[in-house]
């Protein structure tokens, strides 16, 4: 199975790899796993508390090229969005953007899941 050019680009030059301070009040962290393959993904968002805009996003993924590309793309899309806009990101958009084949759709689901978890962690901290 051949990876699309966009997947290869994100895999070879992943954007926003790294970590934010998990304990910070304005950081939300999501750690998720894919039971199909055992991949693990951590995605973090840092939110500007005055504007509600996500000003930074980082990820760390241990998994296949598609999982890495999905989370890398997700962090790119998250930056500059409000929490409400971020909630609208759908895994199908990731599938389309990266031209993921059917067997790799679960990688995009994982990224969507990670976004949800990071947002809900941030919201729990800032109730």
């Amino acid at each position: 199975m051949a990876y699309s050019e966009k997947v290869i680009d994100h895999y070879e030059n992943p954007r926003n790899v790294g970590a934010l301070d998990k304990a910070a009040q304005n950081v939300g962290t999501g750690v998720v796993g894919a039971p199909e393959c055992g991949d693990v993904m951590k995605l973090q968002i840092q939110v500007n508390e005055d504007t509600g805009v996500i000003e930074d996003a980082k990820f760390k993924t241990f998994g296949c090229g598609s999982a890495i590309a999905s989370s890398s793309l997700a962090t790119e899309w998250l930056k500059g969005r409000t929490i409400e806009q971020a909630k609208e990101i759908k895994n199908t958009e990731i599938v389309n953007e990266l031209s993921l084949p059917p067997v790799k759709i679960h990688c995009s689901v994982l990224a969507e899941d990670a976004i949800r978890h990071a947002i809900s962690d941030y919201e729990d901290k800032n109730k």
């Binding site: 796993g33 039971p35 393959c37 055992g38 991949d39 693990v40 241990f62 998994g63």
Partner: peptide
């Protein structure tokens, strides 16, 4: 599965 994946 997560342990196997790490070893793989």
């Amino acid at each position: 599965r997560y342990i196997e994946r790490m070893l793989e």
